[in-house]
Amino acid sequence: MVVTVILIGLVLIIAILAVVYRIHSLVDVARGNHKKKVTGSNGVNAALLFAFLVLSMISLIWYSVSRFDVYSLPVASEHGISTDNLFWVTMAVTGIVFIITQILLFYFSYRYRYRTKSKALFFPENNRLEMIWTIVPAIVLAVLIFSGLKIWNQVTADPPEEAEVLEIMGYQFAWKTRYPGKDGQLGKYDYRLIDATNEFGIDFRDKAAFDDFTPREIHIPKGKPVLLKIRARDVLHSVFAPHFRLKMDAVPGMPTSFWFIPNKTTEEMRIETGNPDFNYEIACTEVCGRGHFSMRMLVVVEEPEAYEKWKSEQEPWLSKNQDYLAKVPEDLQELALIKIGIDQ
C-alpha cells in the first residue's frame, strides 16, 4: 500500500517536473533567449557563487571553532606533541592559502561576470608573476618538508637501549601481545609452530621464551620508551593507537616496529577528558577482511611503579600451558622449570 502511494507520488512528481520543464523551454524559445550571448541566469549564477563563498566560509569557521574539542583527539605521547604541532602549523599555512585562493576564485567569478559593454583584458602571460608563484610555494614547502624531516627522523630513529619491549601480533580478527618476562628477551618464534594453544608459534627450544607472558591487554609505563615489535600472522594489519599518534603496518613475514614514549597515564587521561571510562585503544587500519572494524585492544598506561608491579604478577605462558614443557629440549628442562617458577 505504502509502496503504491510512494510510486504514484513519484510518477506525479516526475510528470509535474516534465510539464514545468516543457513550459520553461517553450518560454525560453518565445523570449528568444538562445539568441542572446548570455541570459539573466548569468547574473544569478554569479551571485550564487558569491553567496556560496560567504556561506561556506562562515559555516566552515563556525564548525571548526565550535567543534574543536570533538574532533581534536587528546595526545598522549612525546613524539605526538611534535607531530601535532607540525599538523597545526601546516593547517595554519594551508588554511591561509585555502581562504585566499577560494576567495579569489569566487570573487573574481562574481566580479568579472559578463557585461555587454565590457571586454576582457588580453593578458596572456607575465613571467614575473609565474616566478613569484613558483618560488614562494617552493620556499614554504621547503620549510614544511624540513620540519617534517626532523620529526620523522626522530620518530623513526633506533629505539633507546632501555626501551620496554613488547610484541603485538595481528591476526584475523584481533591483536595479541607478548612480553619478554623477567629476562627481558622475547623468545624466538616460528609460524610453523603455531597451533590452537600456542597462537604465537613460540619456539621453546629458545630459553628466552620460557618466561614470556601473554596478557589480555597491553600495559606500558608512563615516561619510558616503549618498543612495539609488530608482526602479522595471516594478512596485512596495521597497529593504530590514535592517542599515541602511532601507526605501523603488521606484515606477514616481515616484522616491523615502532617506539614511543607515552606521557599520560590512563588515569590522567580520564581526568583530562572528563570521561571516567576512558581507555586507550588500538585499532586496525589496514583492511584485513570481515572483522577489520572490530580488532580492538586495550592499552593501560601506568606509573612505572604500578607497571613493574603488574609485570611481576604475570604468569609465564609456559607455566599456564605446561603440556608445552615437552617441547623444551632435555638439557633446558631444568632451566625452564626454574624460569616459570615451579619448584621440584
Binding site: F108, Y112, Y114, L121, F123, T134, A138
Partner: peptide, 25 residues
C-alpha cells in the same frame, strides 16, 4: 611535496585567467 609546486602554479594561472575576464557562466 615538490609536486605541489606545479600544481600551485596551475591554480594561480586559473585565478589570473578569471581576473578581469568577461565571464559567461
Amino acid at each position: 611535496l615538490i609536486i605541489a609546486v606545479p600544481s600551485a602554479v596551475k591554480v594561480f594561472n586559473y585565478l589570473t585567467t578569471l581576473w578581469k575576464g568577461n565571464i559567461v557562466f
